[in-house]
Every structure is written in structure tokens, then in C-alpha cells.
């Protein structure tokens, strides 16, 4: 065995675990949902091939799908800028010249919700949001504001989930941004300041272009995670009232585990996969113009 062959074998050896994980958790499930989307299968009876029946049902008969599809996009429209902007502002704040202890404190406080399971903190938020006995309405009441149906009105439920979601997950982009900010050469910022740029101009023309790959990474991960949102609306509102806060993932769960209609659930899952791929592709196309990988 020559040296090159050995190296190739070692390389494959290192790759094998990742490939196996990829096959088990990604490739095989994707192949399974593509196959199942052409079938009728309730987990107990034998699988029956139904051709394009599930796709016909999705595009011509399912009256709920469009609303739920738009809900999913609406989540992205709120979560994406929310995480990008608030995460960035928090990172700028934490990255200021403050004592290391204070910096550590802020980082911990903001990142802590990411570490706690969504189901556990959701229970607390249900009590905060409760219309009659909740903490939030109690203090709003002190200000003379009438109690809001945070979780039970279609007008407010979306916003409630968004507030919860941003509070829960904004620590993640904060950490990415902090790493990006700490990697900006000080000489660049100093040169800009000498040239007369103010802080705002320095952020727009120096900081943002330099950390644009980080911003892009945050945007992609937040977008993909949000398109797959499940736990927050499931626990806080069960997708309701009606379908007001139902996401595609909740809808897939409903057909898979309430109706045991694995064929149709797989078709819905394929539509979510197509949506994620399309939006990711669009983001990559946009990134060509705005993301700079080299500091000139």
C-alpha cells in the first residue's frame, strides 16, 4: 500500500462517521419521503401506491395549505430581520470597551435561553402571556392598558411567538457576531476614524462589510431553522387559534401523527424541502453581491 492510498484510506476513515450520520439522518429520510409521497400508508396497513394523488390533493384540494405556507413565510419575515438586527445590536453592545466581567455577564444572560429546552421555558411564557392571570397583562393593566389575548387571538399570537422566539434564540447570532466583530482588524476602524468617519459610518462601511460572511451565515441558519419552526407554536398555541400560527412543520406532524396519513405528510414534507432549497438558493444568489470574503 503506497503513501497516497494510505492517505486516501485515512481520509475516508475520517469521513465515514459523517457520511453514515448524513445517510441515516438526511439521505435515507429524504429518499423515504420522496417514495412515501407516492403512496398511501398509515404505519399499520401495507403501503399502497397512489401515483400523483397526494400532489393533486396538495395543489387542488387542500384548502388549508396556502394559509399555512404563508404563515411559514411570515415566521421567516419576522424572525430573520429580528435575529439579524437585534443580534447585531446586542453584539455591538457587548463588544464595547467594557470590563471583561461585565462582558461575560451580558454574554451569559443573553445566551442562557438558548441552552434551556424550549418546552421548559414555554411553560413559563404561557403564564406570562395568560390573558386573565398573566404577568404581562398585569403590568399593562397598571398602565391602564386592557388585557391582550397574547396567545388566543390570531392578531397577537404571531407576535407573541416572535417575541418568545427572538428572546429564546437571539443568543446564537450574538455569539457568531461577537466572533466576527472580534476579528475585525483595529487598524481598519482606526483608519476610518482618522478619515473622519463617525461611529455609524464606521459600522455601515467597515464593520458590516467585514463581517458580511458572518451575517450571511446567521441569515442562512436562522432562515432554515425558522422554516422548520415547530416547538414554539406547538407548545404556546398548538398552531391556533384555528390555523393562525400553524407552520408547515406542525401541519406535517398533524397528518403524520393525528391522521396517520404518512403519504400526504411526506408530500407536505417535500413541499417544505422545496421551499427551503429555493429560499437558500435565493439567499446564495443575493449573497454574491453583498457578501465579501476578503478584506481588501
Amino acid at each position: 500500500m503506497n503513501k497516497k492510498t494510505k492517505e486516501i484510506l485515512v481520509a475516508y476513515g475520517f469521513l465515514t462517521p459523517a457520511l453514515i450520520v448524513f445517510a441515516i439522518f438526511f439521505a435515507i429520510p429524504i429518499i423515504a419521503i420522496i417514495t412515501l409521497s407516492f403512496t398511501e400508508y398509515n404505519m399499520i396497513s401495507p403501503i399502497r401506491f397512489v401515483g400523483l394523488e397526494n400532489f393533486k390533493r396538495l395543489f387542488t384540494e387542500d384548502k388549508r395549505y396556502l394559509k399555512i405556507f404563508l404563515n411559514t413565510l411570515r415566521y421567516v419575515a419576522i424572525f430573520l430581520p429580528g435575529h439579524l438586527i437585534i443580534g447585531f445590536l446586542l453584539a455591538l453592545g457587548v463588544n464595547r470597551k467594557i470590563s471583561p466581567g461585565l462582558k461575560y455577564f451580558y454574554r451569559t444572560i443573553i445566551y442562557f435561553p438558548v441552552l434551556v429546552t424550549t418546552s421548559a421555558v414555554s411553560i413559563v411564557w404561557i403564564y406570562i402571556y395568560d390573558k386573565e392571570f398573566g404577568l404581562l397583562n398585569y403590568y399593562l393593566g397598571k398602565l391602564g392598558i386592557e388585557g391582550i389575548s397574547w396567545l388566543t387571538s390570531s392578531k397577537w399570537a404571531f407576535l407573541s411567538i416572535a417575541i418568545f422566539g427572538i428572546w429564546k434564540f437571539v443568543g446564537q447570532p450574538l455569539i457568531y457576531y461577537l466572533v466576527g466583530l472580534q476579528n475585525i482588524p483595529e487598524s481598519l476602524v482606526e483608519a476610518a476614524l482618522i478619515d473622519g468617519a463617525n461611529s455609524f459610518q464606521s459600522i455601515i462601511y467597515i464593520t458590516l462589510p467585514v463581517i458580511s460572511p458572518t451575517v450571511f451565515f446567521v441569515a442562512i441558519t436562522v432562515m432554515i431553522n425558522t422554516l422548520q419552526i415547530f416547538d414554539a407554536p406547538y407548545i404556546l398555541t398548538r398552531g391556533g387559534p384555528g390555523d393562525a400560527t400553524r407552520s408547515l412543520n406542525l401541519y406535517i406532524y398533524e397528518f403524520a401523527y393525528e391522521h396517520y396519513d404518512m403519504g400526504y405528510a411526506s408530500t407536505l414534507a417535500l413541499s417544505l424541502l422545496a421551499l427551503i432549497l429555493t429560499m437558500t438558493l435565493i439567499m446564495f444568489l443575493i449573497s454574491k453581491k453583498y457578501v465579501h470574503y476578503e478584506i481588501e
Binding site: 388566543t152 387571538s153 390570531s154 398548538r238 391556533g240 387559534p241 384555528g242 393525528e258 391522521h259 396517520y260
Partner: peptide
């Protein structure tokens, strides 16, 4: 199972006074 899901969906709207 599926029927309970349908009930929950409409009932949540009813109790929210939205239907």
C-alpha cells in the same frame, strides 16, 4: 385522533371569538 385535532382547531377559534 384526527377528529380531536379538528375539534381543537375550531374550538380554539370559537373560544377566541373569531368564528
Amino acid at each position: 385522533s384526527a377528529i380531536e385535532g379538528v375539534f381543537n382547531r375550531y374550538y380554539s377559534q370559537l373560544l377566541a371569538n373569531e368564528i
